[in-house]
Design a protein around this nucleic acid. Structure first.
Lengths: 194, 194, 194, 194
DNA sequence: GATGAATGAGGGTTCATTCAT
DNA sequence: AATGAATGAACCCTCATTCAT
């Protein structure tokens, strides 16, 4: 039914990020997003099936780019340790560059209902797979212990990064998120190395 | 205004956990909680100031016990490594014993509004402090490196455990959460040790 | 059912006047009246059938005294003009002496529902009859024109006094209500005299 | 926010008058008004900010017309006595023509809360000013005594007319309200004349 | 007689979605 | 394709009244 392409499709998604970041999830009404995107309320439904669909699409589009960027950049490194460092760096750097998006993903979208969060999980799985690949590579390169289970390491890396960003977003006094890259990389590598 | 003690106070909190776990946060109406607790809707307001107050109290009560249990048990260990293992074990064990509560804390309550989440953060801070204490002790005992920042380690430990539980809750096929204790402890200790 | 006598009966009525005057009609809950009267909520219902019954009784008791006082005092005058002056004087004086009661009768009780206002009207009829008697006497004494209808004059006198008190109660800057006695008496007598 | 013009705006106001007159203030739910106006509940809020806003707007619109009509018609008379008669006549005639509106203004709206009554008072002030003008003119034309205070005369005229209409509305057996015009005019003029 | 904990019915308002233009 | 006026379902909380003690 919904078109899901075109100028207005993007405009609506961008408007949604802005509105959610500014007013919070519970105050991000469809009519407010429409006004921000300079379209009529009804127009939203030519491009999206429902409000939920906006949120899922938003996450998919933005997170897709987020992941794509990381994937492309870690491919340039051969050593698993370097790939891991790049992943940590890009994860923190990309979100620190766009605080609005960070607020939306870390705080606001988590208030959404089951359906939206299911849609979000789909996207996150790709990210987790990427982490798995690095761990696997590390094992092959024999820099990571063979006995660590990737399902567990993945939780550690993702959980830690996620907590770090959430903590940064919630914290009022600002600090450089990327300053955590080396300490975290250190911790992970120490934890993993043979 | 609200009484906040007594049999019905507990009954309402327990009912809230059940209802939220079963129907989800957005479908947990006050009247449903009242019915589950076998009290009238109005009775709720003799014990709680508002629906928000139920949720915050719920978290405070249950999480308070959760933390107290951990604190008491880790005090019996002298070595930081053992304390850390006990914390990991009790964190995972307690939540795996009460899947309803796990669903509520890991998934449902995160959809709540700012006020509720503020109340929740208050409680979590205590937990984070407890982690800090273990790290500090580990440094004193010279089993953890002196150069790791506890603010970062804390994020790793909490983030990882949180992600592990969330992942377990979201996962349909059941597995033993406590089976993660040793692998996680291993990872952390490796990461931290001198 | 209800007892309608005794110390507590009076205490509840007095408490109701205070509470309504202080908090307004819509914020005068039964429990607040009970607390002011130092009795339990349930005790109210040993003395009154309903909240409405409190309000009607309040008006009946207080207004009964109000009217009785006027009746007794105007009987001491023989000339209709003097009786009218005394009625005006006592109407304004009594209410100016007890601003709480004035607020309650002029403003707050008028927000009550039909049933209460019906009960109130019962009492007011007695007052209107008293006015009628004075007019009748004036006609007999041939100081008031024979062609004025008492039903109309009654409306003028009561309506004017009522409006004067309401206006005084609503007015923030205070002025002496009794200063209106002579001007009003003048106006009425001029309007009525042969 | 609210539109406050258009066909439906009027329809809702008219529906509110009907519903309040028929069911009374306390039984005039928004949904009932919406049904009477043949619109959805939510539509009400496209035209009014709140239920209170409906009531204040209702009074303002209807009473505005009421006052405007009187003002225009009394301007055609030069003598203060004639103006006063016209005011009395139109006050009573207009309300007797629309018993629903009379019920609403004399009885039902007086049960409303402070905010609504404040809004109502604003409008009534204009009416009182109009009375003041007539009195002033009468003094200039030396048909009314110079020593009568207009603040007091105003209370008499408004209070009497108000009481007359209320009494008529409350009275079950019907009689012609306009039959009171001459007697009342007589009383007032006698009271005021030099 | 007195208590006060418990009851439960009732309503103003929001906002995602539709559809006639 | 685009509009935006209209829809109507859904819910937290208050408070007069009851009744077991």
């Amino acid at each position: 039914m919904a078109k899901k392409t075109g100028e207005k499709y993007q405009a609506i998604i961008d408007a949604a990020v802005k509105v959610i970041a500014r007013y919070g999830y519970h105050q991000a009404q469809v009519s407010k997003i429409a006004r921000e995107a300079s379209v009529a309320d009804g127009t939203i439904y030519l491009y999206f099936d429902s409000k939920e669909d906006i949120l899922i699409s938003l996450f998919r589009e933005k997170m897709g780019l987020f992941i794509k960027t990381i994937q492309e950049r870690i491919d340039k490194f051969e050593r698993a340790e370097d790939q891991l460092r790049e992943l940590i760096y890009l994860h923190l750097w990309q979100l620190s560059q766009n605080r609005s998006f960070a607020v939306v993903t870390q705080i606001e979208l988590r208030q959404s209902n089951l359906k939206v969060r299911m849609g979000i999980n789909e996207v996150i799985k790709k990210y987790l797979n990427m982490i798995d690949q690095i761990i696997l590579l590390g094992k092959q390169q024999q820099v990571f212990r063979a006995d660590v289970e990737h399902a567990i390491v993945r939780k550690m890396i993702f959980g830690t990064l996620d907590e770090a960003v959430t903590s940064w977003v919630m914290n009022e006094r600002e600090y450089e998120l990327v300053s955590l890259v080396d300490p975290l990389h250190n911790l992970f590598v120490h934890g993993l190395k043979t």
